[in-house]
Computed example of a mutant assay.
Amino acid sequence: MKLLTIPIGLAASLSLLALPLASCSAASAPAGGGQVAATEQQGADETFAITDIGTFEEPWALALEPGTGRAFVTERAGAIRFVSPDGKAGTLSGVPKVDYGGQGGLGDFIFAPDYAKSHMVYLSWVETGQGDTRGAVVGRARLDCATPSSCALAELKVIWRQVPKVSGRGHYSHRLAFSPDCKYLFVSSGERQKFTPAQDMSVNLGKIVRLLPDGTPAPGNPFAAKSGIASQIWTLGHRNVLGLAFDAQGRLWDLEHGPKGGDEINLVKPGQNYGWPVVSNGDNYDGTPIPRHATRPDFTAPAISWNPVIAPGDFIFYSGSAFPEWRGQVIVAGLGSEGLVRVAIDGESAREVARYPLGTRIRDIAQATDGSIWVIEDGKHGRLRRLAPAR
Rank of each mutant, 00 (worst) to 15 (best):
residue 134 R to S: 14
residue 135 G to N: 03
residue 135 G to K: 07
residue 136 A to G: 14
residue 137 V to C: 10
residue 138 V to M: 12
residue 139 G to I: 04
residue 139 G to S: 12
residue 146 A to C: 09
residue 148 P to E: 10
residue 148 P to T: 11
residue 148 P to W: 08
residue 150 S to N: 15
residue 150 S to D: 15
residue 151 C to G: 09
residue 152 A to V: 13
residue 157 K to I: 09
residue 157 K to W: 05
residue 158 V to N: 09
residue 158 V to L: 13
residue 159 I to Y: 02
residue 162 Q to D: 05
residue 165 K to Y: 12
residue 166 V to I: 13
residue 168 G to F: 11
residue 169 R to F: 13
residue 170 G to Y: 11
residue 170 G to I: 12
residue 170 G to S: 15
residue 174 H to P: 01
residue 178 F to M: 09
residue 183 K to E: 03
residue 188 S to D: 00
residue 192 R to T: 10
residue 193 Q to E: 15
residue 194 K to H: 15
residue 194 K to W: 13
residue 195 F to V: 10
residue 195 F to R: 15
residue 197 P to F: 05
residue 197 P to S: 09
residue 203 V to K: 07
residue 203 V to H: 10
residue 205 L to H: 05
residue 205 L to Q: 10
residue 206 G to W: 01
residue 208 I to P: 01
residue 209 V to A: 08
residue 209 V to S: 06
residue 209 V to F: 08
residue 209 V to Q: 05
residue 211 L to W: 06
residue 215 G to Y: 06
residue 216 T to Y: 00
residue 217 P to E: 06
residue 221 N to Q: 06
residue 222 P to L: 07
residue 223 F to D: 01
residue 223 F to P: 04
residue 223 F to S: 05
residue 225 A to P: 00
residue 230 A to C: 08
residue 232 Q to F: 07
residue 233 I to P: 03
residue 234 W to D: 08
